[in-house]
Design a protein around this nucleic acid. Sequence first.
DNA 1: CTAGTGACGTGCC
DNA 2: GGGCACGCCACTA
Length: 121
Amino acid sequence: MDRGFDARVWHAVSLIPHGQLATYGQVADWIGAWGCARQVGWALRRLSLPSEVPWQRVVNAKGRISMSLSREGSDWMQRQLLIAEGIPVDAEGRLPLKGFLWRPDLEALALEINQFAIARE
DNA sequence: CTAGTGACGTGCC
DNA sequence: GGGCACGCCACTA
């Protein structure tokens, strides 16, 4: 169960539609890890780039890209990718989260993720 | 073993 | 808006 944490995060993130956003907290909630937003960040950090996973669509609840020296430029890359998807991001990493936040059908999403978890066994 | 550090979030001032 | 405290847990020194 726990060994698939990264995989579950990546799968959930891959469900985010093009041009839309989600927060770390949302993703944590979807996979049944309420309050574990940091772990989501860790899972994405462990993602090797480039990746099929649209990791750039995950931002923090303040509506900003989380800038960090340890990311060695992937934060800057994230900004570029989002702009390429039509989401305006200013030089400080701020973006209009309100207008682009993905609000999925939680029941359908939970079902999708649950089936994925079963398929992994 | 403990302590510090985060791609975080919520609550409070 | 900013700053602080706490909770969360993987990782590192």
